[in-house]
């Protein structure tokens, strides 16, 4: 409830600020004034503020406000930055290599930001629905544990039944699945390819197994389902973490070119 109130407040303040900015820009432009210096500096300040969000996440030990509030501010400031950019540039695709590079980087950062925000709205719900959530850093241990359990079940079945059918099948087929996360793309987009693959493989061997081995096969099915859930967690969390590998470096490149643009403007445009 508190977060909703805060977000509503941010949106209203932003809308009012944008309306005031639009009015001021039009009055200044009609008055033959030059609003580009002011809008340019506002945009640059906003870019610096947007980049502070990354720093805020690293300074989790200091009380700098709630991260959710920071995220809301980051999203709204990003939207304002787009409006300011178009207002400042006066066009969607400026002239000149320097300005075009700046515009291209701005659009890439915006697109990656929008994509990231969309992922943050979309994937957490799916993470919750896909099963118990696992800390990303613990996923390798989780997979190792499942693999150990699967191998233990196969070994026990061979010892009890005296047959090595399931063991050889595990080594030749199923061990590939338990070795590491599989079907990353399918999991990202909510596909069930891994589940079908596993069921098909288990169904294929079932008719050839003894009673004792069938019991172990049931255990393998449970472990395989758990592995599928872990893989889904891994795929979605890696996307949530990995998109910043695009967004943050692009933002740094944008900030660098923006500083160069600022210098050029002060040297050449006055």
């Amino acid at each position: 409830m508190r977060a909703t109130r805060t977000n509503t407040l941010i949106v209203w303040i932003t809308a009012a600020a944008l309306a005031a900015l639009g009015y001021w820009h039009e009055v200044t432009r009609r008055g033959l004034g030059d609003p580009t210096f002011v809008t340019g500096y506002m945009l640059f300040t906003l870019m610096v503020f947007l980049s502070l969000y990354n720093g805020r996440k690293k300074l989790s030990m200091i009380s700098l406000g709630r991260v959710s509030t920071w995220l809301s501010l980051h999203v709204v400031a990003g939207f304002v930055a787009v409006v300011l950019f178009v207002t400042h540039a006066g066009t969607l695709w400026p002239q000149g290599w320097a300005d075009r590079a700046l515009a291209l980087l701005f659009y890439l950062v915006t697109l990656s930001g929008v994509a990231g925000y969309a992922l943050q709205l979309w994937l957490p719900g799916r993470l919750t629905r896909s099963g118990p959530e696992i800390i990303y850093e613990r996923i390798p241990a989780e997979i190792a544990g499942l693999r150990d359990a699967a191998e233990q079940a196969v070994t026990d079945a061979a010892a009890q039944s005296g047959f090595d059918t399931l063991g050889r099948y595990y080594v030749q087929t199923l061990s590939w699945y338990f070795a590491r996360p599989r079907y990353w793309l399918s999991h990202v987009f909510g596909g069930r390819y891994a589940e079908f693959w596993l069921q098909r493989r288990l169904a294929t061997i079932r008719r050839h197994l003894s009673e004792a081995e069938r019991s172990a096969l049931g255990r393998l099915a449970e472990l395989g389902a758990a592995k599928t859930a872990v893989d889904a967690q891994h795929a979605m969390q890696s996307v949530l973490k990995g998109w910043t590998l695009i967004h943050v470096p692009l933002a740094a490149a944008l900030l660098t070119v923006a500083i160069w643009h600022l210098i050029l403007v002060h040297v050449y445009a006055r």
Binding site: T244, L245, P249, L255, T256
Partner: peptide, 13 residues
């Protein structure tokens, strides 16, 4: 890795 790529991007620019 993110820090490195970020520095690389800024340096490249």
């Amino acid at each position: 890795w993110r820090g490195r790529v970020t520095l690389l991007a800024a340096g490249l620019m």
